[in-house]
Write a protein that binds this DNA or RNA. Structure first.
Lengths: 243, 243
DNA sequence: AAGTGGTCTAGACCACTGA
DNA sequence: CAGTGGTCTAGACCACTTT
């Protein structure tokens, strides 16, 4: 068995989880099939079993795998649609792309301005704030699947940062400045509102799962606030709950 | 520093998390204060640092602690009451009670029968199945806040088990038989459907956050399936997401 | 009995924070 | 700079499933 290499800067379990997710979507391991044992995966990738377990736990938490003690780890049989673990912090565009769709982002608003009092509060902040405000929609293979409002704390960004540079993921735009969110606190709502959607393509029914989030840096400082309306039934949000 | 003892049968990180939670609610460690370092806690409780980290991660995931690299682990200052997370597995009646309401459960259906093919599939099972089926609504201070359908795998229950005995939490009914779910895989949806509600009191708008769940025993065997429609805006579902 | 995942330890080294 | 959390390893032993 050839040793596979993990090389980028992200934690090993995250990289390994990506590899496994890839091999599943490639059809390397089919739904219902058993994965190699944790020890075999550890040997194959040249990492410790603890690292493998951490990676598999991530995937099990998003419902892609099911682990049965003594029996093995199995690929869940999934239905169509964009499936994602609700507790995995990933950008909307990545969620879409990871499911094999072509993701396109359409902007309605992209501006640099002073935050309102309300917005300052939402960002858990005190004093006045410069922010970058975005309003955009996400298309998967040409079909609209989500609408989003974002508010980025611009105080931490260099003055030269231009909102027009943001084309895809906000995370990708923040990363070069070392401002990658590590955690988000989200509130979940159902919304039925025809005024949410805009643009040439609209969902048939204005029904959405709405995620209201504040993202925090590893230091604990809030960096962005966002509200995303996911078109109902275009996404499958999986959540593993435990005691 | 006296060594504290952890003794029951649950995993060490779970026990330790409970201890820390207790000491916080006792006022031992106040909101905003820094906890002892991971190594100090490990020494104090006579466990490894990995165990301490696992315990603290649990608490951070439900928002009770905030961990800052290099600086320490801090007790979150919960301004407007503690809101527990969506990823904590709790019964619907407990969720309601924890929001500070008086919970009342009204039954529309409570029967013992053979499962349909569809239901067998939902319970991740193969052969024919005896089930207990429930349809009920939850009132909080007299106002309807949720509707729920439940399906309990009755094969594991003694024949004497009477559906009419179920009055509050399904979990409470299963516990005496040692059938306490350890994990649930949930799917989250938005629903706008006037046919969901029933009974004398109905929500003003038929808009719901819908949680579709299969509960699993520690062995990995599915024990119940449930679909709960939470009336939008009656609940605040908080979720901590991380990388 | 053999093989799987579940738990836990001890220790190493790195990255970050704050004095 | 010392002290904190972040990551990762190697190995031990246990509980459970399958053969």
């Amino acid at each position: 068995m050839a040793t596979r290499r993990l090389r980028d800067a992200r934690p090993l379990p995250v990289q390994l989880a990506d590899q496994v997710r890839q091999r599943i979507s490639d059809g390397d391991w089919e739904p219902g099939h058993r994965l190699p044992s944790e020890q075999q995966l550890a040997d194959e990738y040249g990492v410790s079993r603890a690292t493998v377990r951490s990676a598999l736990r991530r995937l099990a938490e998003s419902g892609l795998l099911r682990v049965r003690q003594g029996a093995g780890t199995f690929v869940t049989s999934h239905r169509d649609g964009i499936r994602t673990g609700l507790q995995d912090l990933r950008s909307t565009s990545r969620i879409i792309a990871e499911q094999g769709y072509t993701c396109q982002v359409v902007y309605r608003l992209r501006e640099h301005r002073q935050a309102t009092e309300d917005e300052v509060r939402r960002l858990d902040s005190t004093g006045p704030l410069r922010v970058i405000a975005l309003q955009r929609s996400f298309l998967a293979d040409g079909e609209v699947v989500a609408f989003e409002h974002d508010l980025i704390n611009a105080e931490a960004l260099p003055d030269t940062a231009d909102p027009a540079d943001i084309t895809g993921s906000v995370f990708d735009h923040l990363e070069p400045f070392g401002l990658l969110p590590a955690q988000a606190v989200a509130r979940v709502h159902a919304v039925h509102d025809a005024s949410v959607g805009w643009g040439p393509v609209r969902p048939e029914t204005p029904l959405y799962v709405c995620l209201d989030q504040v993202h925090y840096l590893p230091s604990g400082a809030p960096i962005t606030w966002s509200r995303t309306w996911f078109v109902e039934d275009k996404f499958e949000f999986v959540l593993v709950r435990s005691r």
